[in-house]
Computed example of a mutant assay.
Amino acid sequence: MAGVLDSVNQRTQLVGQNRLELLLFRLDSPQLYGINVFKVKEVLQCPKLTIMPKSSPVVRGVANIRGGTIPILDLSMATGRAGLSDLKNSFVIITEYNSKIQGFLVRSVERIINMNWEEIHPPPKGTGRDHYLTAVTRVDNQLVEIIDVEKILAEVAPTSEVISEGVIDVDTQAKAVSKKVLICDDSSVARKQVIRCLETVGVEVIALNDGRQAYDYLMQMAAQGKQVDEELLMLISDIEMPEMDGYTLTAEIRSDPRLQKMHIILHTSLSGVFNQAMVKKVGADDFLAKFRPDELAARVVDRIKAVEAS
């Protein structure tokens, strides 16, 4: 337990500093790709795969790893290319997204680098494959592409977006019409999921692509003399975003007297013990794992009721 706590303490030193660690890897080309180390549980040589009938072609099979059965997705095939052929000499990156474990099949794994989110940028327009990218950066003068894993997972195993009956009551829905919620997420799929969920609740949604855009939007409101926490019901922010991550966005908001009363929910596919420590350190009001429409809708409903009762 002491080791875990030490690790948490070390990682939380980066909170508010807008930093991340990327694991670099390659598919069947010289192109470099990156994945946030927080998502990675381990990397191993591709194990023996058992083919699953009727599964998506992207799922090359399942592997028995540490006593658990884990689906292995071919990242090359998932992004519209030919699947990797030489499985014996390939690697699997075991990851956790949205509290689910899966492996990503890649050709090779390079190294881990420490970067600042300000060095991570939205993908350029018209790159041809930008619909599978959330961001790009440069390492040693080489372009690194960061894949929209949430889009891939949504295509391979779609998540239900239906809100259960009884989560939203008629009275709250009527009051929601006058409320605005600001959201920011660099994944187009995640943004659409959140927008549809909140529109079902009844609120007006302002959707932005990253933490920098959200911060600039809030600063502009404050500069115009608006009472931001009264104009906006809440902010729902992803954590991993180019330019400015959700932790830094929250810390910046809390440090500005004009913004610090904002109700903030960090909504992320990141899992694990680190999040609770980080959320507490930066001062967010709540943390919610993606994508759970009932829980997200319930948080917004609770916030509406709290504001109406105050």
Rank of each mutant, 00 (worst) to 15 (best):
Y217P: 11
D238R: 08
Y215H: 08
M244T: 11
I239Y: 13
S237A: 10
M234H: 10
L233A: 02
Q220R: 06
L208A: 10
S237N: 06
G225R: 04
A214Q: 10
P242C: 09
D229F: 03
E231G: 02
D216L: 15
A223R: 09
D210N: 15
A207D: 15
Q227F: 03
A214N: 13
R212T: 10
A207K: 09
Y215K: 09
M221I: 00
P242S: 03
K226M: 08
A214R: 14
Q224C: 06
I236D: 00
I206W: 02
Y247A: 11
L218A: 02
K226E: 11
A214K: 11
T248L: 13
Y217Q: 03
L249I: 15
D245Y: 14
Q220C: 12
P242R: 09
Y215Q: 00
A223D: 07
M234S: 07
L218W: 05
M241C: 11
G211R: 01
R212F: 12
N209L: 12
K226W: 09
I236L: 02
Q227Y: 05
Q220L: 08
T248C: 02
L233Q: 05
T248V: 08
M221T: 05
D210C: 11
Q224L: 05
I206C: 13
M244D: 06
E231N: 05
Q220I: 13
A207S: 15
D216Q: 13
K226I: 10
A223M: 12
M221F: 04
G246P: 03
S237Q: 12
E243Y: 06
G225Y: 07
L249H: 05
